[in-house]
Design a protein around this nucleic acid. Sequence first.
DNA 1: CTGAAAGCGCTAACAA
DNA 2: TTGTTAGCGCTTTCAG
Lengths: 360, 360
Amino acid sequence: MAKSPTRARHAATLADVGREAGVSIMAASAVLNGAKTSSRISAETRTRILAAAEKLSYRANATARALVDRRMNAIGVATTLSRNELNQYFLEVFNGVIEAADEFNQNTTVFAVPDWQEGASRIPSICDSRIDGLILLAPLLDPEAARFLPDHTPIVSVHANHELPHVVNLESDEEVGAFEMVRHMLEMGHRRILHVGGPSDNIGATRRISGYLGAHAAANVKPPADYIVPGYFTTESGRRDLEAWLQHHRGEPLPQAIFAASDAIAIGCLDTLSARGLRTPADVSVVGFDGTMLARSAHLATVRQPLREMGHRAVRLLLDRIEAKHQDAVHRAPSNIVLPTEIVLGQSLAAPRTRAIAIS
Amino acid sequence: MAKSPTRARHAATLADVGREAGVSIMAASAVLNGAKTSSRISAETRTRILAAAEKLSYRANATARALVDRRMNAIGVATTLSRNELNQYFLEVFNGVIEAADEFNQNTTVFAVPDWQEGASRIPSICDSRIDGLILLAPLLDPEAARFLPDHTPIVSVHANHELPHVVNLESDEEVGAFEMVRHMLEMGHRRILHVGGPSDNIGATRRISGYLGAHAAANVKPPADYIVPGYFTTESGRRDLEAWLQHHRGEPLPQAIFAASDAIAIGCLDTLSARGLRTPADVSVVGFDGTMLARSAHLATVRQPLREMGHRAVRLLLDRIEAKHQDAVHRAPSNIVLPTEIVLGQSLAAPRTRAIAIS
DNA sequence: CTGAAAGCGCTAACAA
DNA sequence: TTGTTAGCGCTTTCAG
């Protein structure tokens, strides 16, 4: 069938350019898209092709090329995104991913899953060669759900809750970070350190608790009973859970410090304290976890995870695996990579008051 | 050529499934991908195909389909992303985009450009049918640079600095928002309202100033000289620029309130004030602009722009245009859509002090 | 109801 | 140096 007039509304193709310039398609391909055609094009033809392309405003078609190359030059990032609260943790890692992907000329496509239960079932369908590899951000996938993970698309996870088959995981040494921060607090003289934590089935939350308990044990300090409060990693949860805890502990001495399981939680705690007229750090010190922008803007003491760097690393790791697969080679990487955390002091942490306040 | 053994490492194709099930390719296509083949497949064949697909773990190839459909079901978002500071404004809009795109089963691909100067030259190359349409987030593109915008890919912008040809722009009524907020502040009794603003060549920054001046004029109040400070939309800028301004105005009466051009700036101002031992709002009120998460977590009074909704709208608008183009129809939309802003009161705004403090 | 053929836009092998 | 042919995986004609 000859070209129908409606085609005009679409972008010009190599065939169009070739016709316009009076050369073959692959001459045009070689000049415009750098195809590895066997030989070189004469300077004269080259300029003719360039002119034709310019005139028709030719644009390469990435899907056609991807079909041939079996490579889209795009990576995916799957994560849960809450409707109510921007997840700063995600944003830090994501920023790192974008930066690194860009550096390697890869596009980044975001897949927001409502929750990992549903995410598990949707992941296979996005691995349809629109992306060459996938990064799972803090996936809550049990081994059962992980059975659905496609094995023809390389996958890297960051802070995975479980070990996932064929998936390289990237995490940071949260327990050590928690340990050192709490040890530091104990050394400052704090004895009543309340831990406002994350979900009890979350491995990261568990590790923070381990560090918290470990530091106490190492200092031979027994944390007061009922001083570990489970919750979620959000500001709203931090605000609400601390308030609830305080109400249940009226009359008891106020904690000297709060060690929160995330910066978001810490911000929530700050809110609750200030709503009760308590000053930070004069009355209560508050410490966060993650080292997000939230902590920086609130001058919060926190345990910094190298989130952005983890984004970078995840991309490099993924690209290595994609490259290896592409060359039919086997990429051997350790299945789990642990990056160090770092203690960041801030204005929200100071020595404890000499006289305890009673919870009102 | 027969199948080479290396092929085994790739995902199974429709041909593979067809062979396995002993049916034609398009029978498989019809069953697995819902292709509009003329007739229906018998139940028996259908189950055979499904079984074969399951066995070979068949995955549709999106690039192949896109080649045929001329549609990738993906939209792009182009924006500048600073390395140092997470842009909360962007994040709010982006979240809205993701949500809406997801609702329409579209993927979202992020293109981070270092700056719009370079972005202008890179945009054409990303419109290579890997995305069906593009959203420009707060583009700083002059008409000259806009000449490079490809016309075969529908484009929608949010808060564009200039009118762009063939581009539908979405913005909010920033001037009215600024006007009403400042009017409210004046009504509360504030007379020395310092405006810590954005870049003077930014249209949004200009509109905030117009609102600020308009409210003063309407109230017959002349703002003190030198009370409009240009800067950038960042926390760092807010912190630094306010400090510099204060140092240049030693001995003068302290402003009673600060009207910042963004929430990020406001947070920076808060820092500077607290570093100087000044209390908010007792000594100085502080008001932000944007209504981002930053404002919510700091309980900042702010002028809320419906950022998330703008993300939604942008996606819907874009999809309409994509659909129209796809059907060779002409999509007529107004070239500029203005959404209302809204005043949000918060703990950072209170009545002015009765006695002025001198700047130290 | 099913199969064969053509083509989406591009690139890699060849042959001229 | 250039053109020809085949094919990436899929879908939509159109014949059987």
